[in-house]
Structure formats: C-alpha cells, structure tokens
Design a protein around this nucleic acid. Structure first.
Lengths: 193, 193
DNA sequence: TTGACACCACTCTAAGCGTAGTACTACGGT
DNA sequence: ACCGTAGTACTACGCTTAGAGTGGTGTCAA
C-alpha cells in the first residue's frame, strides 16, 4: 500500500470524475489510472478494493464542498429574514452546482448504496449529519422556520440541483434564481417585523 | 428484428429491472436475456442497439405508472382543499414508490442522459410534459395554489421518493406520511373557506 | 412447404485485475 | 564522496471474465 499523499488525493479526485462520467460500474482501477494520468496498476497499489475507493471518493466530495468558514460568522450576524435565507440558499445551490462531478458522483453512490449495505450505512450517516447540521445552523442563526422548514428546503433544492445537472432544459438557467426565491417564499413562514 | 410483442414487452420489463439493479452500464443484452429468462442472444435479436433498449425502457416506466383513469374523475369532483391535495400527493408518492425499480431506472436514465444527448432530449420532453400535465390538472381541479406551487411540490416529493428508495433510514418509513402533509401544508396557500 | 421464430453454440474482442520484475530517487550512515 | 536501502514509479504479462454478434438447427403453424 503506497503512501504518497499527493498521488492519493489525485487518484481520489480522478475517481470522482470517473464516477460522474462513467457511473458506478465504470469506476475501475484502470479507469482511475487513466483519468489521473498515472501508469496502469497504480490505483491497485493505493486502494485495497473498490469499496475503499468509493467511500474515500464520497468523503472527498463533502470536503470540497465545505464553505469558507467566514460564511458562518457572517450569517450569524446578518439579518434573520426571508431575503437572507434566499441569499443563503442561492449561495448553497451555486456552491454545490459549481462542482457538478461531485454531485453526480454522490448520486451514483446513492444508487450503488442500494446494492452495498456498508456503503449505504456510511452514506446515510454522512447525509443525515449534514441535514442535522443544516437544521442546527438554521435554528442557531434564528432564521424563520423550524426543523421541518429546513427539511422541505433540503428536499426541494436538492431536486432542483439534480434536475439542473441532468436535464438542464427542464428549468431554464435564467429561471433558477427566481425558483429558489419562490421555494423560500412558499416554505418559510412570513417575516415577523 | 423479431416481432413477438409479448416477448418484446418481457424484455423491456427485464431491462428496467436490470437498470435499477446494475445501473446503466450494467444494462447489456446478455443481462437482459438472463433477467427475462430467455436464451442468450435473444435481446440482440429484438433491439437494434443499447439506445433503443434505453428509450423503450424509459417509456415503459411511465406507462406502468399511469393512474387508474377513475382517479381523474374523482379528483375533479372532490373538495378543493389542502387535505385533498395531501391525500392526492400520498397516493402519488405511494404509486411511484410501489414500482421502485422503475423509479431507480429513471434516475439511471437521467445520469446516462448526461452522456447521451439524444436520450437527454427524449427524457427532457417526457418529464417536462409530465410536469405540465400535473400543473394543468391541478389548476383544472381548482386546487389551492398556482403553477409554482405544483413545481415546488414536484421537486420536494421527488427528492423524498429518491431518498426513500436509496437511503431509507434518512426519513423513517413511519414519518413519510407526516412529511408529505408537512410539505403540502407549507407549500400550499391556506384554504379559503 | 415455407417462413418466422426459438434456441444453442461458437468465435472474436475487449477490459480489467493483480503482481512480478525492473528502474529510479532520496536519504542516512560511514 | 560513496554506498546501501527503502520506498516508490513504471512496465509488462498471465489470467479471467464478460459480452457481442451470428450461423446453424429445431419447431410450429399457416
């Protein structure tokens, strides 16, 4: 098992691209080698098996999505109204969409999870934690709405992203920002001035 | 090119199962043969190529989801309030979820559509038509809310279904009906008695 | 008898895995 | 300055699996 961390990271990033482009079943050691432009057999030397590769790829996507830490501070200090939530949601959708391979790779992992119980439990924990963190943050920042509000936002916006990335002509690009505002407007309770 | 329609349908249904179970890349003629329990080489004789098989599978899923026609009549005559919409949404989520292989196959097709422009345009049209039909029906039935209402419902409930089918432990089964009611309650305007 | 289909068997090709063997590089010890 | 060693990079090979497509033969019914 080789240790070179730069190479390891490059291989994991390559795995994400392959997952998004070729699907879970196309994720082979060889394909990762080619994508990372390293000689055949290299990935075999860095990962014990496919599961290893899959879970590391999933973790890496979340790493690369971490927002700038200043975001948290800004939000806690900002206003607690719908307009601010809309801005936040736009930022989030934009941030996730900006790494399309990562999002598509996660969807592939979800589908693969229907076949691999271990992957399913890892993914379930990660996604549940993420949702809970969002709920916690929303409440801590004293934004309008409760846990259910955040859950409904989570569902609608996730589907919006999936739709944009797979069938972009269903919701025209120009309409997306308005759609996000619509979602927030419908789901959040009115501001109490 | 063989014509036997019963066999052809059996092969398409088998293709849906294979898509859901093995992913788009696992959809091979041989896998379909095995799933449909017909001799090797049969699918080769019934479909010109993989694209042919993919688009026919997509169409078949929608066919199998068609609600009983009496549903439409019932809805047009029923009350026009949130409670009724909730019941309708539960029926719809239940109907789609009851054919999990179909739903997962469609998600696989979405991902495959990122690679195949032709499949993308076929799918885009079908899904856009379906959404428009839902919007039209909602308005025709004089349910509370407008086109945006239906769109937001569409997004949130689709993600709910995807979540249920891929990572069922994120939202416990027992919570689903309540969650649907929550979604409707937040997204629809209040009843005007 | 003929035509359409079912079934079976076969060849050809491609892809991938794992690893053995060799080459390179850097570093510490002397 | 030299050498040995450890860790890694690269290459190549054997082995296995999977699938595509097709030709030939059997079967049934009009």
């Amino acid at each position: 098992m080789r240790q070179n961390p730069a190479r390891r990271a490059a291989l994991v990033d390559a795995a994400i691209e392959v997952l998004a482009r070729e699907g879970a079943r196309g994720l082979t050691f060889r394909a990762v080698d080619v994508e990372a432009k390293v000689p055949n057999g290299t990935a075999s030397n860095y990962f014990a098996n496919r599961d290893d590769l899959l879970t590391q790829a999933g973790a890496r996507v979340y790493e690369r999505w971490q927002p700038d830490s200043s975001l948290f501070a800004d939000v806690l200090e900002g206003p607690h109204d719908r307009a601010h939530v809309t801005a936040l949601m736009r930022e989030m959708v934009g941030r996730l969409t900006a790494f399309p391979a990562g999002y598509l790779a996660l969807v592939e992992l979800r589908l693969e999870a229907t076949r691999r119980p271990e992957l399913r439990s890892v993914l379930t924990r990660r996604i549940r934690d993420d949702l809970d963190a969002n709920i916690g943050f929303h409440l801590e920042a004293r934004m309008p709405g409760d846990a259910t509000t955040v859950t409904v936002l989570y569902m609608a916006l996730n589907w919006l992203i999936l739709e944009r990335l797979t069938l972009p002509d269903i919701f025209p690009e120009a309409q997306v920002d308005d759609l996000i505002a619509d979602v927030v407007e419908r789901v959040l309770p009115p501001d109490t001035p």
